[in-house]
Design a protein around this nucleic acid. Structure first.
Lengths: 336, 336
DNA sequence: ATTAGCAATCGAAAAGGAAGAGTGCTAAAA
DNA sequence: TTTTAGCACTCTTCCTTTTCGATTGCTAAT
């Protein structure tokens, strides 16, 4: 447990460094941040904090920057999570008022809004299809050889896909298919549609393989498709001073270009509502020089997508977390 | 019209510069590229080509690099468009064999393939909805207050959307809607669905505004939605030496992050099958340091999407154009 | 417990210099 | 007339050296 003054010094250094991106000197803190001590006193505290692992030096005679432990302490103990202005509240509210017919659109709007307010690169994936139950499947004949399958789930999510056939099929056949599929699949989990089921339907139902197979194939494909990934404000990161280093910039581009990696990150580790991973705390080593903040938007057990921010370790945690909390609350209030 | 030897020198310089990204010296060309002359002779030719505007120097005592006029001459007169290996042909063919149910998926595959083979950043937009005619609209009731509208067009394209209502609607109502809409819209251009039509339907058909309005609103929204933009291999550009300049890298990120700009670019200027814009030739001044090569994939009058490559002016035009030509041909053969 | 004072350290920027690559030009060779 | 050898000149790149200033840690005074 840190003494009160050490906390103040640590907080001042973290915030100053977040603002300026320059190592913080002892003298720059005197008479600021409620620290009315001489630079020598601050210097002693800084030396202690460094020994305890909260601060680092870039070289012998430089000012201090926070270590990952320092950031972590700041995030856990010192950070204010109401760092959001009236204008921002207003702006967010307006944005989220937008009427949408699909949840994914809302996730998209939230992503853009967060990126606009925080000026960090923001990403999101749509809701997971795991754990969803099939409520009903509808088939609509669009042409003599073109059928649309519409799957309704228990959460109100709708997935549709088009199946093309090699030969004509009749309305009568569609009716049979409709009956068969609903008979077998109503109330079942979405991922039941795999090969065993295919065999079953074909064998047990004694229905033409030429008709059943393409349907199952296509439905399988659609439900196993990767969750859609949204990315907003990749260029915003390039205005940050840490991106003056070409190595950092290239690293960043490689990361956000790697869609599977991003999806993984947004999919993992949800201990809390809002999760902060600082540098090496990230599971993926590629991210060791960045921080990630994610939050899962859900109502009850209904997963509605995940939004994440990626930025330098010197991220404005306070602002980002405040904005996320507010958006999270707003989304919950909307009650979708 | 350039003399034969000048052409050879120009071609050699362009190709050498594309390969090495270093200004090309007179001595590096002797005994290469079918140029059996001394460096002094080459030097004289280079001086002439520079006077004529085809070459530039980065400073007084440097080798030469092609000017935009030089690249243009190379692309128009000197470039080989069969610069594609057997392995590449095989790879492309395999990729394009993939069975897809929707055209957009094919565009996506082509985009990825091009990026993989050329190592340049590749983008694409799906087919334009302009000029499409409505063949039929189907309505499917998904729940008491949820309706799906499925629009079939003359090109076989399918667009569907979900409409939510404030009050229950019956199967009977859906039938009426179905009849009304098809009656009025069959054979009409897709973009007929605008406000006047809304007024017309509501007034003339004397049908509940509460039902008609949300349907029209939603359909309007869907058909006016931006065409989907695909982007592949943004990180690949960062391996190019020109991206060692931070200004260039940042510029590039800003460009590809600007989706409207990218969409505009892919939408404009289709004089030929394959279009090359070198540096300042680009309409958008942001692109003055880059080259863009686009091609529109169409069969007959049916627009099936546009694919574009963006890279430095020192782009491997020969490779890119060869690959595009081959893919274009393959897509045409597939006949979708 | 705090602070003033000061030598010591190190990075960043400026200045200087050497090496090398490439050109243009002149005069000789083909 | 065309081509080439030869060489002075130019300019970049890289390396070293120097200077300047910011900041620290330590010691002794408050």
């Amino acid at each position: 447990m840190l003494e009160e003054r050490k906390k103040k010094v640590l907080q001042a250094i973290v915030e100053e460094y977040i603002n300026t991106a320059e190592p913080v000197s002892s003298s720059s803190l005197t008479n600021n941040y409620d620290l009315n001590y001489s630079s020598a006193t601050i210097r002693n505290e800084m030396a202690d904090l460094e020994k305890a692992g909260y601060l680092e030096k870039t070289h012998t005679s430089s000012g201090r920057i926070p270590s990952e432990k320092g950031y972590r302490y700041y995030v856990d103990e010192l950070l204010k999570d109401d760092n959001i202005s009236l204008e921002e509240i207003k702006y967010i509210s307006e944005k989220l008022e937008t009427k949408v017919n699909e949840i994914e659109d809302l996730t998209k709007i939230a992503t853009t809004t967060i990126s606009e307010i925080t000026h960090y690169t923001t990403l999101a994936i749509g809701p997971s299809t795991e754990d969803l139950l099939i409520e009903e499947i509808k088939f609509v004949l669009l042409g003599p050889r073109m059928l649309m399958a519409i799957i309704l789930t228990n959460t109100g999510m709708v997935k549709e896909t088009i199946i093309k056939f090699e030969e004509d099929i009749s309305e009568k056949q569609v009716e049979t298919i409709n009956y068969m599929f609903n008979q077998k699949l109503k109330g079942q989990p979405l991922d039941i549609i795999d090969s065993p089921l295919e065999e079953y339907l074909i064998n047990e139902m004694k229905y033409s393989i030429k008709v059943i197979r393409p349907i199952i194939e296509q439905i399988k494909k659609v439900i196993s498709e990767d969750r859609k990934l949204y990315l907003e404000g990749a260029n915003k990161s390039f205005d940050l001073p840490e991106f003056n280093s070409l190595a950092v910039a290239r690293n960043f581009i490689n990361i956000i270009d790697e869609k599977d990696l991003m999806t993984d990150i947004l999919n993992s580790g949800f201990a809390k509502d809002i999760n902060v991973y600082i540098g090496d705390e990230n599971e993926k080593k590629e991210l060791k020089d960045f921080s990630i903040i994610t939050f899962k938007h859900k109502v009850g057990n209904k997963d509605l997508g995940t939004i994440g921010i990626i930025g330098p370790k010197r991220m404005d945690y306070s602002k980002v977390i405040s904005v996320m909390k507010y958006i999270n609350k707003k989304l919950k209030d909307k009650g979708i």
